[in-house]
Design a protein around this nucleic acid. Structure first.
Lengths: 145, 145
DNA sequence: GTAGGTGCAAAGATTTTGCAGTGCT
DNA sequence: AGCACTGCAAAATCTTTGCACCTAC
């Protein structure tokens, strides 16, 4: 995975390599995606002293150098995810809050038409799609409240 | 516009008709879309005494009965918009923060493939797409920093 | 008349910032 | 050794909630 050269990325922009930055990046990679709080919890399993504000600042830096990105999933909870994963789209169920990841290729034609008709360059990994997942749809269908 | 029957919608669910609710709905319709703060400002042009918490509560109610929806555009600022507008998708430029509205039909094939492959029922009006708008792309191209 | 609704102020939740001490280079 | 980075605590945002009064029905 590209995380191998993570320290290069930081150094290249004049940032320093610190245990906190390594831990946060590893936590994000391990989790796949998570909110700052969740990431902090994961980091603290290895280093209890790390502070939440450090996580925020670190995520900013990691995003700056392109090692992570974030998407707005629920209400006010931004979700960060590592960049070396395959690019994927988040499907968020408004019923059960589950988050599914879908291969970004599915959206390729759509992205292209946005480019063609609007001249808009879509940031795919940042895209969040709200709706109702299969499980909840089926539950509704049978329970038909 | 369907807002004609807005009071029916509320009554049907057992809600009462109040000046505040009318004003908030009108403000949203007039603005097209806006954050709670922006909506409050618009409402206060006609009734200065209305409180921000009332706007929040009212938006919840209006969303409950399907008169407005919200999407997460920037960081923590949810944007509400009226439902009787044509259904549209928001394109948000991460460079200049401009919000463009695009006809939802553009996404129809994509939505359909999400249904077909994932069984996911997309809430189109809730979809926010991040990226770079035409203007900013062109600016970058010429300025080539 | 009576429940639901509103205003106000305080409490929560989330994110940012100032500052002094620490540690990467 | 110098300056970026971190931890801590306070500040800034944004949103929700408790409560007393008001008002639509």
């Amino acid at each position: 995975m590209s995380t191998a050269a993570w320290d290069e990325r930081l150094r290249a922009q004049g940032y320093r390599i610190t245990p906190q930055r390594q831990l946060v990046l590893e936590a994000v990679t391990r989790l796949g995606h998570g909110t700052p709080e969740e990431i902090l919890a994961e980091v603290q399993r290895q280093a209890a002293g790390v502070n939440l504000s450090t996580v925020y600042r670190t995520l900013d830096v990691l995003e700056e150098v392109g090692l992570v990105t974030h998407a707005h999933i629920g209400h006010g909870a931004p979700t960060f995810h590592s960049v070396d994963d395959e690019v994927h789209i988040h499907l968020v169920c408004r019923r059960c809050d589950a988050v599914e990841s879908v291969d970004a290729d599915l959206a390729a034609p759509f992205i292209e038409s946005l480019d063609a008709t609007q001249g808009f360059a879509t940031d795919i990994s940042h895209m969040t799609i709200q709706g109702v997942c299969r499980t909840c749809r089926e539950a509704t269908r049978s329970a038909q409240r």
